[in-house]
Computed example of a mutant assay.
Amino acid sequence: MWCGLASVQPERSFESRSPERETAQERLLVYLPWGTPVDAPDRLLVNGLWFEVDGEPMRWNHGSLRHVRVRAWRVTN
Score class of each variant (00 low, 15 high):
V8K: 07
V68P: 01
M1K: 13
R43H: 14
P41H: 02
E11W: 04
N61T: 09
N47V: 08
G4H: 06
G35I: 07
P33S: 07
N61P: 00
P10I: 12
E56G: 06
E56R: 11
W34K: 10
W2E: 03
A40E: 15
L5W: 09
P19A: 13
W60M: 06
A24W: 10
E52T: 03
Q9S: 14
R69T: 04
P33M: 13
R69P: 00
M58P: 03
S18Q: 15
V53I: 05
R74D: 01
E52D: 13
V30G: 00
V38G: 02
V38H: 01
V30T: 08
L5G: 04
W2K: 12
L32D: 00
L5A: 11
M58D: 13
S7F: 10
F51L: 05
N77K: 14
Q9D: 09
V38D: 00
Q9N: 10
E22D: 09
T23K: 14
T23W: 04
R27C: 05
S13E: 14
W73T: 04
P10L: 11
P41R: 06
P57H: 00
V38L: 03
E52Q: 10
A6Q: 05
D42F: 04
R12D: 06
M58E: 13
H62S: 11
E56I: 05
H67E: 08
P10E: 06
V68Q: 08
L5R: 15
E52V: 02
W73N: 08
C3T: 10
R66Q: 11
V70G: 03
D54P: 00
E56P: 05
Q25Y: 09
G4M: 11
A72M: 01
R17I: 11
W34L: 12
C3H: 12
A6C: 08
A40R: 13
E52H: 13
A24H: 07
R43Q: 14
S16Q: 14
E56Y: 06
T23L: 08
W34S: 07
L44Y: 07
D42P: 00
H62E: 14
C3S: 15
L28K: 12
R17S: 13
E56A: 10
T76P: 00
V53A: 05
V75M: 12
Q25P: 05
S7C: 09
H67T: 12
R12N: 09
P10N: 06
D39F: 07
V68E: 04
R12F: 03
L45C: 04
R66K: 15
R43A: 09
G55I: 14
A40L: 12
R21G: 06
E56H: 10
